[in-house]
Amino acid sequence: MPTRSVPSAAAIGGRPIHAILVPFPIACFVLTLAVDIAYWQTGTLMWQRFAEWLLFAGLVTGGLAALAGLIDAIARRPLRQSHHTWVHGIGNVIVLLLAFFNSLVHARDGWTGVVPWGLGLSAATVLVLLVTGWIGLGMVFRHGAGVSDHD
């Protein structure tokens, strides 16, 4: 249980925007890996097209989530002073950079758009997401980041 909560500065109706947006890029990037594997196994071009759209949606929603997280980090001193915040934030910037380069790789035609580099970048993106997600959950559950006190 956190010792004290640190409410989100970027919130709508008391709900933290960062926490609302984060599931979307996570789902998009994990599904990108899944459809890359499907393309690798089947060679069906449809899977590469799905990956391109998933990467685009993940980058847009990830950028919005990053902006909301940055607002929280800047506005709340306890978050700004925590090394967990910076590791989480920098890790997620790395996720977005990997996804951006993955999007460029997927823009190539056919097999070379996915195998081997697109598939590798998708896997690396998901691995970094696992680490940053773990850190982010720790920030919420152990340090009360984005948690409001309720009477």
Rank of each mutant, 00 (worst) to 15 (best):
A51F: 01
P78S: 03
M46G: 10
G58Y: 00
I20T: 10
Q41T: 14
Q81W: 06
A51I: 07
R77G: 09
A34I: 15
I37S: 08
R77H: 11
V22A: 09
G69F: 12
V60W: 09
R77A: 12
H18E: 06
R80T: 07
I37A: 14
I20E: 02
A65H: 02
T44V: 15
P23H: 00
A68N: 05
A73D: 02
W40S: 14
A34F: 14
G69P: 10
W47M: 09
T32Q: 08
L31V: 13
M46N: 12
L55F: 05
L45Q: 11
G63M: 03
P23G: 02
A57I: 13
L67C: 03
L33H: 02
G43F: 03
R80L: 12
G58A: 04
D36G: 04
P23K: 00
L31F: 15
W47F: 12
T44G: 07
F29G: 08
L54G: 10
G62N: 05
A27T: 10
L64H: 02
P23C: 04
G43I: 08
G43Y: 04
A51V: 12
L70E: 05
L31N: 12
R49I: 14
R15S: 13
A27L: 11
A27M: 08
P78D: 02
T44P: 03
P25S: 01
G14F: 06
L70V: 11
R77L: 13
P78C: 01
P16S: 02
Y39S: 08
I20K: 02
M46A: 15
R80V: 01
G13T: 10
F24R: 00
A73R: 14
P16K: 07
C28Q: 03
A73C: 11
L70Y: 10
G43L: 02
V22Y: 00
Q48K: 15
Q41C: 07
L45I: 15
I26P: 00
G69Q: 05
L70A: 12
P25C: 00
A38K: 10
L70N: 06
C28E: 01
G63T: 13
L79Y: 11
F50T: 09
W53I: 14
R15G: 11
L67A: 11
A38C: 08
V22R: 00
I37P: 08
A68G: 01
D72A: 07
L45R: 12
T61M: 10
P78M: 01
L33T: 02
G58V: 06
F24M: 08
G62R: 05
R76E: 10
A73Y: 06
A68M: 04
A68W: 09
H18P: 05
R80Y: 11
P16W: 07
F29H: 10
F29M: 10
L59Q: 04
A75N: 11
F50G: 04
I26C: 00
Y39A: 04
L79N: 11
V30I: 15
A65T: 03
